[in-house]
Computed example of a mutant assay.
Amino acid sequence: MNGVTGPDSGDMNISGNTIFIPGATSGIGLALAQQLAARGNTVIVGGRRQELLTTIAAENPALDTVRIDTTDADSIRSAAATVLAKHPDLDVLVTMAGIMRVEDWTAPAGFLDTAEATVTTNLLGPIRLIAAFIEHLQTRPDATIMTVSSGLAFTPLRVTPTYNATKAAIHMLSESLRLQLADTTVQVLELEPPSVRTALMPGQETSDFAMPLDDFVTEVMQLIETQPEATEIQVENVKFLRYAEARGEYDQVVSTLNRRDPHGH
């Protein structure tokens, strides 16, 4: 978002952007879209289900919507063309879409389809989205790509191996793109959620371990406003996972995570 170029850039200008958030028909994506729109940004919400988009548009007149299936390369290209034709001033892309599913790799017939779907959605999806918008974003005077990884990119949850792997890949992709784009007008931010009370996994919306959605989004907005030099957006709750290895507590944190909560991401 405008103004985040380094530690000397001053507070982020968190309004006046045009932001596309594919995968924002529920959960973190929708809550973030609503907060960003309330701050004076033009926000376009993308999703696969037209009925959800119609409802969101009716309930949130400030939000624009576009249908997109981030598992489908043609749909991504088509949606990108639609968004850019209507919003040529687009300067922020948030690659929000993702799935999180349990896998049992001790029963090979049961996990492969899930693993492949997870890679397609969580890794190929963001790669294709960035590819569809990167040329345009480099023409803007100040642009941002926000990727979405997870605390599980750094500390694994036993029951979701491919999810963990895709989020670790998103982290390293973000790090690498930041290096490649260092001399352009495009910055790369990485949002790293902990477990948040959404429908990402069964039971997660009511989990005592998961962070309330409103609290998470409020803290994210505060971090974006007050830490313009940050390259990773980390609420306090995710640091237990994010820095386990750096603290020398990796084994203990892995044990605690996998004993404490079957949904924690």
Rank of each mutant, 00 (worst) to 15 (best):
L123Y: 13
R140A: 10
D142M: 02
I130G: 05
A132H: 02
L124F: 11
L152M: 12
L137D: 01
A132W: 04
R128H: 11
L124S: 13
A117R: 10
S150I: 08
G125W: 04
N122L: 13
A131W: 01
I127P: 00
I130K: 06
T139S: 07
G125K: 07
I134R: 11
L124A: 15
T144W: 01
I130D: 07
T139C: 06
A117L: 15
S149C: 12
I130M: 13
T118D: 11
V119Y: 09
T120S: 15
T120V: 15
V119A: 15
A117W: 00
V148Q: 03
A132E: 01
A132S: 08
H136S: 07
V148S: 03
A117K: 09
I134G: 06
R128F: 02
T120N: 15
L123V: 11
G125E: 07
P126R: 01
T121S: 10
I127K: 12
S149V: 04
T144L: 09
T147C: 13
S149G: 10
I145Q: 05
L124E: 10
M146A: 10
A153K: 04
P126C: 14
R128A: 13
L123G: 08
T147I: 10
N122S: 12
T144K: 03
T144N: 07
T147Y: 02
H136Q: 09
R128I: 07
T121E: 05
I134P: 00
I145H: 03
A117I: 13
I134F: 01
T139A: 14
L124T: 10
S150E: 05
D142T: 04
I130V: 14
L129F: 05
G125C: 12
M146C: 13
V148H: 02
E135Q: 13
G151H: 02
I127M: 15
T139Q: 11
N122F: 06
L123I: 12
F154T: 10
T121K: 00
A153G: 14
S149E: 06
T144C: 15
R140C: 14
L129P: 00
L152K: 05
E135L: 08
A132Q: 05
H136C: 08
F133E: 03
F133L: 12
S149A: 15
P141L: 06
F133A: 04
R128S: 07
V119K: 09
R140E: 07
A153L: 09
I127E: 11
S150Y: 01
A143C: 09
E135S: 10
A117P: 00
V148F: 03
A143W: 00
A132Y: 03
L152R: 08
P141V: 06
D142E: 06
P141R: 03
D142W: 00
I134L: 15
T121W: 06
I134M: 09
F133W: 04
V119D: 07
L129W: 03
R140T: 09
P141T: 04
L137K: 05
V119F: 11
P126Y: 08
G125F: 06
R128P: 00
R128G: 01
V148G: 04
L123A: 15
A132F: 02
T120I: 15
E135V: 07
F154L: 15
S149I: 01
P141M: 01
S149P: 01
T118V: 09
M146N: 01
T147L: 14
A153D: 11
Q138T: 13
S149D: 11
G151Q: 03
P126E: 11
G151D: 02
